[in-house]
């Protein structure tokens, strides 16, 4: 009897969460899948997937979303990791520094838009600061950035907001890192860098993977900051296209199905990316449980 119970126990723990999804989330999602795979009259058809892929802005949106995710996750992970290691040292004033580091996370999205829109406008506070400090003579026209410059611009703004949220996951993970491992490394003559690379990172792997995956999923769905800074269609992203069909041209015959088909496409792309990342990591994984 006990054995049988034991086998089902993990599923038992997972069930509440899955039930929750079924109750509160799954219905509109199933509907979205249905709508994306049918024609207007309800018959099976993949024409909307074809419409999505052949859209003039699809390639640009896909490229931007993937590039944004790639660059921003690498950048944010590296900096957040350094910050977490730093704050983990628990020196004098480190908890106050932690508080400051967390502030950007608490800023609501609308405020972020105001902050950076007023900052980067021609007579905004960034140019104001640079001119007052005599670093530039004439205001820089930040907002006329196009193409890859615009993408980088958005990545930087996103990083400012998102860095603390990546950092706290890594910091929480570092709390269980046994100090003895580090000390052992130092005794055996390892450099600081080697200790990080060969001791800390492997032990921290689950946390790192979690932080990267969560960030990857969010980064591929970034859209609002592009619309707030530049407007629709100027720097397209996948989810920005969804917002376009839902909010900007809702009365077109195809809008409803297009927005849902795009949603399905995005979910698929994100899922595949995450699976690729996990597979790559599994290959490199060695059991480092001491």
């Amino acid at each position: 009897m006990k054995n049988k119970y034991k086998k089902w126990f993990p599923y038992f723990l997972l069930t509440p969460a899955l039930l929750y999804y079924v109750l509160f989330w799954i219905r509109p999602v199933l509907r979205a899948f249905f709508e994306s795979m049918t024609d207007y009259d309800g018959s099976f058809s993949l024409m909307f997937f074809s419409k999505v892929i052949n859209e003039s802005m699809f390639t640009a949106a896909l490229r931007n979303s993937l590039l944004f995710a790639l660059i921003s996750v690498m950048l944010q992970f590296t900096v957040a990791f350094m910050m977490a290691l730093l704050l983990n040292k628990k020196f004098k004033g480190s908890n106050l520094l932690l508080f400051v580091a967390l502030i950007p996370m608490a800023v609501p999205p609308a405020a972020v838009a105001i902050l950076w829109k007023t900052g980067f406008s021609t007579f905004g506070w960034i140019n104001n600061l640079l001119i007052t400090l005599n670093l530039i003579k004439e205001p820089i026209l930040w907002m006329t950035a196009k193409g890859y410059n615009a993408l980088l611009f958005l990545i930087l703004i996103d990083t400012w907001t998102v860095l603390p949220s990546v950092m706290i996951i890594l910091l929480a993970g570092l709390q269980n890192l046994n100090k003895e491992y580090e000390e052992a490394g130092l005794i055996f003559g390892a450099s600081r860098f080697q200790i990080i690379k060969d001791i800390i990172m492997p032990i921290l792997k689950p946390t790192i993977i979690t932080a990267v995956i969560l960030r990857m999923i969010a980064a591929m769905q970034v859209w609002m900051i592009s619309v707030m800074m530049f407007g629709y269609g100027r720097v397209p992203f996948l989810v920005e296209r969804i917002a376009y069909y839902t909010d900007m041209v809702p009365m077109l015959k195809e809008s409803y199905k297009m927005s849902l088909t795009y949603s399905v496409v995005v979910t698929t792309i994100v899922m595949i990316s995450v699976m690729i990342y996990l597979r790559v990591n599994k290959k490199k994984e060695k059991e480092v449980r001491i």
């Binding site: 406008s121 021609t122 007579f123 026209l141 907002m143 006329t144 800074m229 530049f230 407007g231």
Partner: peptide, 18 residues
């Protein structure tokens, strides 16, 4: 002004005298 592409009204540009 090229920055006109970033605005949906002229308030900021006019008030700041851009």
């Amino acid at each position: 002004l090229e920055t006109s592409f970033n605005y949906d009204n002229p308030v900021e540009q006019m008030k700041s005298e851009e």
